[in-house]
Design a protein around this nucleic acid. Structure first.
Lengths: 325, 325
DNA sequence: TTTGATATGTCAATCGTTTAACATATTTTC
DNA sequence: GAAAATATGTTAAACGATTGACATATCAAA
């Protein structure tokens, strides 16, 4: 592996001059520049980023912690974050916590150990204290941490409101809501709040069922939905917290002989690819994932540069009318 | 940020001893071990992995290059690779090439610049020469490189064979195959070969349409499929190269008033989550993604340790019978 | 008592790059 | 012809951990 020294020798210059060319510092002649470029090409030289990082104070790496990759919402989120990070010259250290606290905590250590420029934490489950000792910016997505640097969310309450309004205006009178994991408090809980408020105001009954962490992991919601529909056979409107759940609800309805949207209206959340690939296609709440991702990376960048950044950013959602409601 | 020196001072020992504790080298007393652990905890010390990497010859990072993240097949692949990598103590540097040669090439440079232990390249599109100068192991998935270290594939030909046999045994006599990007030669082209061979042997006509690189990127196949079905209205069996395409084909059929599986049988490829969430559910060819991922990481690990590894590993596929064929 | 195992200290080099201080040219400009 | 700008060289410290050579000390067993 060629080093700066090798390049310098090849170019007949000193490391100082070569470094000046590389970093565009001080005075450099066109002649020197050419010699250096030629030598670099000839030796197939690539600066050792590890050494660079050690010399400087931190790396250009973002630690991206997600609970899952297979879940289309997070796949979408990761993709958008990578895009923006790449544009800004950051790399992604991918941390798949799998909703396992232990693994999440370990990955946080790995991030700090690798001197990341900052951490983007998507829907983390780890407790607050873990972040007390962290000196790098921590940007949370769909999760608020008192000791975090900044949080990015969509307007979850508004999403719940839109869903309830839509279902009720479709004529539904017996609603069922598949909410979040009950054990962890999340901004996404606000979906339920918005939903509840509308229902109460309009005098429409609704039941709520909670998911479990393990389901978040294996993405199997069939049994839960089937059980809930059996317990509440009068249900004619369903609002669930993700399109993945909604897609499975459609399968359950089909198995149970419940026609959608005839007997049952369904509204999902996220508006990921899958929403347009089910039959009937899913009506859902659109999360502005791209914008959230861009903002998160920008916040991280600004915070890492020592700027003061807004503690909380909330982006609007909107209803996408398709076929299920 | 606490350093080894700080820990040594806090523990009342020297860096040598502390290093011995950390790396379990030489003689260490329980007393010293305790002192060091206490000091580490007190100072919230995390070894600087950057410095460690610089000192050693390479990092414990795998450069994972994928053409897409949003595509469920790659999301699945990434997830499985991360899992196995984590078990083996590797980190993932996520490189989303977006099927852009320029970006893929740049990411390869970034990987070498960051002194990754090895590269796992999924369905890369970059030309062979790029890898000539690379000294780290390069494991390719679903792509064969003469100058690569090892390649992992599924039995694509077998997949094509199974699909053709199934469609024909379902009574289809006018087949259509949505194949790969025509401009790049890939192992996945073998699906077409296997498919063709069976069709020819059985005397069943079939047409083939090719996808474009941009479609791989934006995952929009509707127009292509619709056009193909209009050009070949006699089609009664469809074999497409991914479940994403198949799911869209179902939507197109619905729009065109073609009943599936009544008038049209459909077989996808990959067997990702989405396959069980469409209506009707997709019959598809299962790729052993988990096994492929594990093998890839193991190959990388072995190759990085200087072992000789098999140049090509092909894993079996099988047909998953659901509702579309 | 001697030997050897155990335990720690000291010191310095190394990994590859950056950067600053300082010296020394050459060329340009007034 | 002097001053200023341009260009490069020299040297060394720094980033943080690893590692090896070597010294020294304690304690056990032979």
């Amino acid at each position: 592996m060629a080093t700066l020294k090798d390049v310098a020798k090849e170019a007949g210059l000193t490391v100082g001059t070569v470094s000046r060319v590389l970093n565009n510092r001080g005075y450099i002649s066109d002649d020197a520049r050419e010699k250096v470029n030629g030598a670099m090409k000839k030796l197939n030289y690539h600066p050792n980023e590890v050494a660079r990082s050690l010399q400087g104070k931190s790396t250009n790496t973002i630690g991206l912690i997600v609970p899952h990759i297979r879940h289309p919402y997070f796949a979408e989120m990761i993709s958008n974050i990578e895009n923006q990070a790449y544009k800004k010259g950051y790399r992604i250290l991918l941390c798949n916590a799998q909703s396992i606290e232990e693994k999440e905590r370990e990955y946080i250590d790995i991030c700090t150990g690798n001197r990341v420029a900052g951490i983007i934490l998507c829907s983390g489950t780890v407790s607050v204290e873990v972040f007390d000792g962290i000196r790098v910016p921590v940007i949370t997505m769909e999760r608020f941490l008192d000791n975090g640097t900044a949080a990015v969310e969509c307007d979850n309450r508004q999403g719940g409101t839109l869903a309830a309004e839509r279902l009720i205006s479709c004529g539904c009178r017996h609603l069922l809501h598949v909410g979040n994991i009950s054990s962890i408090s999340m901004p996404a809980d606000q979906r339920t709040e918005g939903f509840r408020q509308v229902c109460e105001k309009m005098g429409v009954a609704f039941h709520e069922v909670f998911t479990e962490k393990s389901q978040y992991h294996n993405m199997k919601y069939d049994a839960l939905i089937e059980k809930a529909l059996q317990e509440h056979p009068e249900t004619d409107g369903l609002f669930v917290n993700s399109d993945v759940i909604a897609a499975q609800a459609l399968q359950v309805c089909r198995r149970m002989g419940i026609s959608v949207p005839g007997q049952m209206k369904v509204i999902g959340f996220d508006d990921v690819n899958i929403a347009a690939l089910t039959t009937p296609q899913l009506t859902t709440i659109h999360q502005p994932v791209r914008e959230m991702a861009e903002i998160a990376v920008n916040l991280l960048h600004d915070a890492a540069s020592g700027k003061i950044v807004p503690k909380r950013t909330v982006l609007p959602v909107y209803l996408v009318e398709r076929e299920t409601a």
